[in-house]
Design a protein around this nucleic acid. Structure first.
Length: 450
DNA sequence: ACTCAAGGCCAA
DNA sequence: TTGGCCTTGAGT
């Protein structure tokens, strides 16, 4: 393994931050937390917290409050059932395969780090410092989710190749460029491959200095798509659109181009997520087919809030009334309702961490029909919800109901995304959406599903 | 034979 | 009670 710089990816105990000595009771922990957990469970110990049950647990203070220490053990995912009732020594337990899978996943993450490092080294941004800092381990937060998946996803068991399937496929020949050149023959070829790279962690590190930030939220923030890269791609694309052979493009064509670009970024974001990768390809596709419009709507709104990204189309109040069939919602309707939600988020002063986490709540939806492993998806959703609750309570202790407000926003996002889908589907029926595009596939999947 | 997560031991 | 080190033994 070569990092170009000496980077030690030594794991830290998710309970107290001490040095990890191996897998104990379901995840990587230090020797002392292993012993503490064992004694507590074996001897049915009951502790009490003399404070507010929110004691900070770190290497120096872990002895001070066994109540909070044990709570944290459970919270990060240590398993009571791994402590043997018969006290038999030696041998192996049922978690063996889980540990093996977890190791493989960590290796994948290391490789992802190397790729990210190479990318940033080429673009001139130093990265060694934040890895060497040692206060961030990407895989640490994965310990909080019990990883049940043992089988490697197989591509053979699925039907005709779709655009998402191409994206979800981990085949080395995968390229998004070809899709763009097919879609916009003779037009812009956007290097969307760069969207695959996780965003520059250095630019976000300043937001993640707080050690109280839940590891999952930190991870979501660090791996949120890079806005600068997206804007660069958008600019390149529109530049070429405008200077191309067709000087005039309809409003919808511009909107479509933007939507297509955002959809690619959304699928890439999901595909790069360590949690999403653990799902079978069929489940990945079902989740994306189900929530793409919600993620799209959220992405557009987030762009306004976080980066003041102006989607010119939404700024237009006037659109020539369409006399074509079928009639559908107007862009004006959409713009108005989007604006209303946008204002709600402005009042809430929602931040990047919250928006990055909400995306996972949308993506990991166990209610989607015919999932192979809705149990795992449910678990992830609960973990994300828990992490977001912890984050909102830490970041805004004066607003104990903040999570409820965020969830209320989420429930209002759904009808907006349905309206957006209806709008796009009407344009699709009028033949305005290019065939074989990602949007085309999404619309088909939705309207052909049972 | 080796691995590595269980449980056990015991000085601090 | 803690936590570093030791012993054990099923799985590979």
């Amino acid at each position: 393994m070569e990092f170009g710089c000496e980077v030690d990816l030594e794991e830290l105990c998710p309970v107290c931050g001490d040095k990890v000595s191996g897998y104990h009771y379901g995840l990587l922990t230090c020797e002392s937390c292993k012993g503490f957990f064992k004694r507590t469970v074996q001897n049915n110990k009951i502790y009490a917290c003399v404070d507010k049950q929110q004691c900070r647990i770190d290497k120096a203070q872990r002895k001070r409050c066994p109540f909070c220490r044990f709570q944290k053990c459970l919270h990060v995912g240590m398993r009571i059932e791994a402590v043997r009732a018969d006290r038999m020594r030696g041998g192996r337990n049922k978690f063996g395969p889980t540990y093996k899978r977890d190791r493989a996943l960590k290796q994948q993450q290391r490789e992802a780090f190397i790729r990210a490092h190479r990318f940033r080294t080429e673009s001139g941004t130093p990265v060694a410092s934040w890895i060497q800092n040692g206060d961030f381990t990407f895989t640490e937060s994965l310990n909080t989710v019990t990883i049940q998946k043992l089988s490697t996803p197989s591509l053979q068991s699925f039907g005709p190749t779709g655009a998402i399937q191409n994206l979800c496929s981990s085949a080395s020949s995968w390229t998004i460029k070809s899709m763009y050149s097919n879609t916009y023959a003779g037009s812009a070829v956007v290097d969307a491959v760069t969207l695959m790279e996780p965003c520059d962690p250095c630019s976000k590190l300043r937001f993640t200095q707080d050690p109280r930030m839940p590891p999952l939220v930190m991870e979501f923030l660090l791996y949120d798509p890079d806005e600068l890269q997206l804007q660069r791609n958008t600019d390149v694309h529109f530049q070429q659109e405008l200077t191309g052979c067709c000087s005039y493009r309809s409003t919808f064509k511009q909107l479509y181009a933007m939507v297509d670009l955002l959809l690619h970024a959304i699928v890439e974001w999901a595909r790069m997520s360590a949690l999403f990768k653990q799902l079978q390809i069929s489940d990945q596709m079902k989740l994306l087919h189900h929530c793409w419009s919600e993620l799209l709507a959220l992405d557009i709104i987030s762009g306004h809030i976080l980066y003041d990204r102006q989607l010119h189309i939404l700024g237009r109040k006037v659109e020539p009334p369409s006399t074509e069939y079928p009639p559908g919602p107007s862009l004006f309707d959409l713009s108005q309702r989007g604006q209303a939600l946008l204002e709600k988020l402005h009042i809430l002063k929602v931040d990047h961490q919250e928006l990055a986490s909400i995306k996972y709540l949308i993506l990991f939806n166990p209610a989607v029909k015919e999932l192979e492993d809705s149990g795992f998806i449910e678990k992830v959703k609960l973990q994300v919800g828990g992490a977001l609750l912890e984050y909102t309570r830490t970041a805004c202790p004066q607003l104990p109901n903040r999570l409820a407000h965020l969830l209320e926003f989420l429930s209002e996002l759904r009808p907006l995304s349905c309206l957006a889908e209806e709008y796009l589907y009407c344009r699709h029926l009028r033949g305005e959406v290019p065939c074989n595009s990602l949007l085309d596939e999404m619309l088909h999947a939705k309207h052909n599903s049972p």
